[in-house]
Amino acid sequence: MCKHSPTCPNAEAADHEAAKAVLRDDVTGFARLCNGVILFNDTGELLPDGTPIAPHRSGHVRQAAAA
């Protein structure tokens, strides 16, 4: 699918998120990568074969203090 040079990683590669976005919709919160992966703003993913990948944010997330 990819026509970039160098070629982007395919959907099965460990670094598949490094592929370039060919379609982005910031209103609905997703990007379609050239390898067919759909990447959501919450870091969840949908692979071309329909396999979902749960959100996997990096870093620490602060919890709100209980009142």
Rank of each mutant, 00 (worst) to 15 (best):
P48M: 13
D42Q: 03
D15G: 03
R24P: 00
G36D: 02
V61L: 13
V37G: 00
K3C: 14
N41G: 10
L23E: 15
A14H: 12
T51C: 05
H56V: 07
A67E: 13
V22M: 06
A54M: 15
R24Y: 01
L46Y: 05
A21D: 06
G50Y: 04
I38R: 07
H60W: 08
L33E: 05
N10L: 05
N35Y: 00
P52F: 15
T43L: 09
A65N: 09
I38P: 03
R32G: 01
A31E: 08
C34S: 10
F40K: 02
A14W: 12
A65L: 14
A54H: 08
T28S: 06
C8K: 04
A31T: 05
A13G: 11
P48F: 07
A21F: 03
G29A: 07
F40E: 03
D49W: 07
D26M: 11
L39A: 03
T51V: 07
G44K: 09
D42I: 02
I53Q: 06
Q63C: 08
V37D: 00
A21Q: 07
D26E: 13
H56D: 11
K20D: 12
D42M: 02
R62W: 15
P6C: 11
H4W: 06
L39F: 02
R57A: 11
L23F: 13
T43C: 06
T51L: 08
D49Q: 12
T28P: 01
F30Y: 15
G29T: 02
A21R: 01
L33D: 03
I38K: 12
A11D: 13
L23D: 09
V61Q: 14
S5Y: 11
T51Q: 13
P48G: 06
K3I: 15
G44F: 10
A31W: 01
D25E: 08
G44I: 12
P6S: 09
V37F: 00
L23R: 14
A18L: 14
D42S: 01
P9W: 09
E17L: 10
A66M: 15
M1C: 11
V27N: 08
A64G: 11
A13E: 14
L39G: 00
H4F: 08
R32Q: 05
M1H: 15
I38A: 01
P55Q: 09
A19V: 02
R32S: 01
L47P: 00
V61I: 15
A54Y: 13
A18I: 03
D42K: 00
A67Q: 10
L47S: 00
G50L: 08
G29V: 03
